[in-house]
């Protein structure tokens, strides 16, 4: 447990999941018979128009909500079992840091919640901090950091429990385009170090392709997965691939699918 290592765990299987929300005088089918398979250690991006239920799917996988029908399994465990065992990691668009805690102490939060002795994880935390490039800022408060740095803290916090599944809900959605590209490169590097099974919800087609092994395209009302597209690029990927015709071709195809699915 003392240093970072590749994770084990089982494949992630979503089968015929349904979830509806009752509004005042309407029923929204956020997810309609959604099925998805993610092999261990692979990276999948979820793209789709607003309201297609991609964040809902992520919350179901995080064990924060339950489906109305269908099943979600990670290996042979339910998301809630994974959650209570502390085997999941999440990062949101909002870094959601505790404003009164330093960078170091924000990262230790999940360990404290799990009741693990923080001092046993000193090396892990130090490695994580250098992995996300925050050396020298261990004792800074979130208010003293830039937006990108805060997001790095949130990602380090998501990784500190050495999760088997990493759930990212538009983690760079609030950053500007240039910073977003830098963070994409960083995320690839961080992810490659341990390769947790990862689901990334994003609005950006480029980000989805650049990071993922597969891109799942969703449509809205009702929320469905309409196609899963393979991304053929070798890893590690360099930013230059974004200028290749293959990349453009893939991006065009995904945006066609998005528009066909009643998109933006």
């Amino acid at each position: 447990m003392s240093t970072l290592q590749e994770v084990a765990g089982g494949a992630l299987r979503v089968q015929n999941v349904e979830r509806t929300f009752a509004l005042k005088d309407d029923v929204v089918r956020a997810l309609d018979k959604v099925s998805l398979e993610v092999p261990v250690g692979s990276f999948i991006s979820l793209i789709g128009p607003s309201g297609c239920g991609k964040s809902t799917l992520l919350r179901l996988l995080a064990g924060l909500e339950s489906p109305d029908a269908g099943s979600l399994l990670i290996g042979d465990k339910t998301p809630n079992e994974m959650r209570t065992a502390g085997r999941l990691g999440v990062a949101f668009q909002d870094p959601a840091l505790m404003p009164w805690r330093s960078v170091w102490k924000n990262i230790t939060l999940p360990l404290q919640v799990m009741g693990k002795p923080v001092k046993d994880f000193k090396t892990v935390i130090e490695e994580l901090i250098s992995l996300v490039g925050l050396q020298g800022f261990e004792h800074a408060l979130p208010s003293q950091l830039s937006g990108g740095m805060r997001q790095r803290v949130a990602i380090a916090r998501a990784l500190v429990t050495e999760p088997e599944v990493l759930l990212l809900d538009e983690p760079f959605g609030a950053l500007d385009e240039i910073l977003r590209r830098t963070m994409n490169l960083e995320l690839q590097r961080i992810w490659s170090a341990r390769r947790p099974t990862t689901i990334l919800v994003t609005h950006s087609i480029e980000e989805a392709i650049f990071l993922a092994d597969k891109v799942a395209v969703m449509s809205a009302r009702p929320g469905r997965i309409i196609e899963i597209v393979d991304v053929p690029f070798e890893r590690p990927r360099v930013p230059e691939i974004m200028r290749s015709s293959e990349f453009h071709h893939l991006a065009d195809r995904l945006s066609e699918l998005l528009f066909a699915g009643g998109g933006h």
């Binding site: 502390g86 939060l109 999940p110």
Partner: peptide
Amino acid sequence: DVVMVAGG
């Protein structure tokens, strides 16, 4: 949510 996902 962060605390809940950490098994809280």
